[in-house]
Amino acid sequence: MGSKAAVLVLTRERPERIFEDTSGMDQSRSINLAEKFLGGIPRQSGVVPLDLAVWPEEGAACVASFPHFDVVCSRKIAQDRPSEIIVDIARLAGLRSAYAVCMESSRDWTSILAWSPKGVTRAVSLSPEGGVVEDVGKRLPFEIPFWAGKYPVRERGYQLPFHPIDLGNEALRVFFGFILEGAEDDLCVDPEEIEIPIFHCP
């Protein structure tokens, strides 16, 4: 399957390892958030583990509202330019900050967004085919080793200094405390142990 993700977290707190506490999910708020995101009356069709929730099927959204954060996963979030989803993010976030990581290993593509009510803190999107599509704001600390050549690509003619999918998994680790590919550390949660409701609109 590789790494595929389109995950958005809304929170008033810093997001690091935020998935360590997923107790107390509010079902009513989750449904309301799904309705707001999908634009219609949602129908819950079960729950899925987080590692699958981050890339639901087309037309579906995996949505959960926890005491300290909300999470929305949908392919609608996976835009080549992170700035294209800012209007939707602002509508969902209110006074909270938002963090999004999207990636698709078949394209070796990743986009990362950090946003606050004051505006975009960081937006970057890149792939070997499209190059650097968007690069806004100050690079985040975990990005710097990638851009500095610490993770070189061993492929002749590759158009970027690193694999974007590796950056995407590192963004998941730093932002949310889990990864889809690579070596887990002691601070990573197991995404297979976290369940997220999946919603469809009829």
Rank of each mutant, 00 (worst) to 15 (best):
M1Q: 12
S3K: 03
A6E: 05
L8T: 00
L10H: 11
L10D: 06
R14S: 14
R17E: 10
T22A: 03
M25R: 12
S28R: 14
S28T: 15
N32W: 09
L33V: 09
L33D: 05
E35Y: 03
K36T: 03
K36S: 08
G39L: 12
P42M: 02
G46V: 02
V48A: 06
P49M: 08
D51W: 14
E58V: 15
G59I: 10
A64V: 15
A64R: 02
D70E: 08
V71I: 12
V72G: 03
C73M: 05
R75A: 14
Q79E: 09
D80Y: 03
R81A: 12
V87P: 13
V87L: 15
D88T: 14
A93R: 03
G94L: 06
G94C: 10
S97V: 12
S97M: 09
S97C: 13
A98C: 05
V101F: 08
V101S: 02
C102K: 03
R107H: 04
W109F: 04
I112S: 00
L113T: 01
A114N: 10
S116T: 06
K118F: 04
K118V: 02
G119Y: 00
V124P: 00
P128C: 04
E129M: 10
V133K: 02
D135Q: 08
K138R: 09
F142S: 04
F142K: 01
P145S: 06
F146W: 07
Y151C: 02
Y151V: 07
R154S: 14
R154K: 13
E155M: 15
H163Y: 09
P164K: 03
P164I: 01
V174M: 12
F176W: 13
G177W: 15
G177Q: 12
I179N: 12
A183I: 15
E184D: 12
V189I: 09
D190P: 11
E195W: 15
E195F: 14
F199G: 02
